[in-house]
């Protein structure tokens, strides 16, 4: 009756490591979970008795709250640890911190860390499932998944869908997760930004590169506009903010050449007036807030799948 893909992975580390079928399974599961958040009682007993710890070494509001709500709507117990208040500043290593958390019989650890690969290290070191909530400039799989879910929901299929990712590709884990996932599902991906913010050899990921925003807009079904990380601008990766706005800021004028049903997406938080003008961010093309809604459903699906995963090679010695 339904195609049978079985989830076997203990962890969610990135979209790079998933098959197209596994991504589809997550998206299908997400659709079912989305309904739960529309109920009067937004809670199902599925993960009752499971404990989930979120370990955030970088500031985050949206992702942390989204994961927490997802866990709570599945009836799991959650504890949040943020770097500012934890003993990591007392010199404890990440691995020690995680080993201590493991010793408290936790089922899932959600990790955000500024070092690429930190979740991979943890996944090997501890038995609980590890979910990558963003590692350095590497991947942010749940953001990638919620972007792809939103595109699929709005456009039906990813096959042949033209997606342009605009902005700071080099520092963006969101871009990388998008590219991995979108390519696997058959979308055409273009990246567009100042040359200093486009990583060398990004073409090897199967994407097209352009420095011309108008061109990137013209062909696109979806624009995924990234946040300019002003905190990184100290390194002067482009001459000035004003120049960036002139060349890469998406505004109503530029959208005149766009397809009539183009989708504007943004992972948030928006720098209004820089990468997006307010009238575009609030326009009928914008699905930015729907992305946030879908984020909870995606994270519910991920928590459900990793806590129930069985068999498969990456899940050795899992306790019953």
């Amino acid at each position: 009756m339904t195609k049978k893909t079985v989830w076997t992975k203990k962890d969610l580390l990135g979209l790079e490591y998933l098959t197209a079928e596994e991504i589809e399974l997550i998206l299908d599961t997400t659709r079912s979970f989305k309904e739960v958040s529309t109920r009067k009682v937004k809670k199902v007993p599925t993960l009752r008795g499971k404990t989930i710890v979120s370990l955030f070494f970088e500031p985050s509001t949206r992702t942390r709250v989204s994961f927490e709500l997802a866990a709570k709507r599945l009836s799991a117990d959650t504890v949040g640890i943020t770097a500012g208040t934890s003993s990591i500043l007392k010199g404890e290593t990440l691995k020690d911190a995680a080993k201590n958390i493991e010793a408290m019989n936790v089922d899932v650890v959600i990790l955000r860390h500024s070092t690429s690969g930190a979740p991979h290290l943890l996944a090997k070191a501890i038995e609980p499932s590890v979910i990558n909530a963003g590692d350095g400039a590497h991947e942010h799989p749940t953001q990638g998944l919620l972007d792809i879910f939103t595109m699929r929901e709005k456009k039906g299929s990813l096959k042949g869908l033209k997606v342009s990712i605009i902005g700071d590709i080099a520092h963006s884990r969101v871009a990388r997760s998008n590219i991995w996932g979108l390519k696997k599902l058959g979308a055409d991906v273009t990246v567009c930004g100042p040359s200093t913010l486009i990583p060398l050899e990004i073409e090897k990921m199967g994407v097209r590169v352009t420095n011309d925003l108008d061109e990137a807009i013209k062909s696109a079904d979806v624009l995924n506009v990234l946040r300019i990380q002003l905190e990184r601008q100290k390194k002067a990766l482009f001459p000035s903010i004003r120049e960036y706005i002139n060349l890469f800021g998406v505004n109503k004028e530029r959208l005149k050449n766009a397809k009539k049903d183009i989708l504007i997406m943004h992972p948030g938080p928006i720098n209004r007036g820089i990468e997006l003008t307010p009238d575009v961010a609030d326009s009928e093309y914008s699905v930015i807030l729907e992305q946030v809604t879908n984020g909870i459903a995606v994270r519910m699906a991920i928590l459900f799948l990793v806590t129930g995963a069985t068999g498969g090679s990456p899940r050795e010695g899992r306790k019953k």
Partner: peptide
């Protein structure tokens, strides 16, 4: 109704059941 999320044997079943929507 899709009752998957309310099952009492989710930790015991061999394969994670597919979740479908409740309408």
């Amino acid at each position: 109704l899709d009752i998957t999320l309310y099952r009492d044997d989710l930790t015991e079943v061999a394969e994670q059941p597919q979740v479908h929507e409740t309408h």
